[in-house]
């Protein structure tokens, strides 16, 4: 089914159509990951795996990450393949929808950022800025399943 799930990040509850995002990503995963030749670096996984994030930090990190993808990643992922571009648009618009909901939680103080989550996210930004912008964006897009696996 469309798999619109209600995610509980503490008192922040948001619905997210994860299955639609996943099916959009699955359709372009091989194409996007093939454009990322760097096996030895990861934006999201190293040195800190998302799976090590404390539950109290989950909301803040998720909020940061959706902002990161909407503000920094998708716009630098344009390809010569119109099908891939359309799928990226679909994912980006879904992310924008979720980013807004997380933003509301943040404004309502339901998505607070501790020092640890800020440090973790800064590490992700450092990984991102360690590559040229297009490579970093394509690598981040290719790691979308890492984000979705963790969020779920």
């Amino acid at each position: 089914t469309a798999g619109n799930k209600i995610f509980h990040f503490g008192s922040c509850r948001i619905s997210m159509s994860v299955t639609e995002i996943r099916s959009g990503f699955t359709a372009i995963k091989a194409n996007i990951q093939a454009r990322d030749p760097v096996r030895t670096l990861s934006i999201l996984s190293y040195p800190h795996s998302l799976h090590k994030v404390k539950s109290s930090d989950r909301c803040c990190i998720t909020h940061h990450l959706f902002n990161f993808y909407v503000d920094k990643v998708f716009k630098h992922c344009k390809t010569e393949d119109s099908y891939v571009n359309r799928k990226i648009s679909s994912i980006a618009n879904s992310f924008l929808s979720v980013k807004r909901k997380l933003g509301q939680c943040h404004e309502q103080k339901k998505c607070m950022c501790g020092q640890e989550s800020t440090e973790k996210f800064n590490q992700i930004l450092a990984n991102y800025e360690g590559l040229n912008v297009t490579s970093a964006a394509i690598k981040s897009l290719g790691e979308l399943d890492i984000l979705l696996d963790w969020v779920e």
Binding site: Y83, N85, S89, S90, A92, L96
Partner: peptide, 19 residues
């Protein structure tokens, strides 16, 4: 062609063709 909210706000109001 179509344009989502994302394209309007983050990609200079770009349009995407439907092939």
């Amino acid at each position: 062609e179509f344009q989502g909210e994302y394209e309007r706000e983050y990609v200079n109001e770009s349009w995407i063709p439907i092939c």
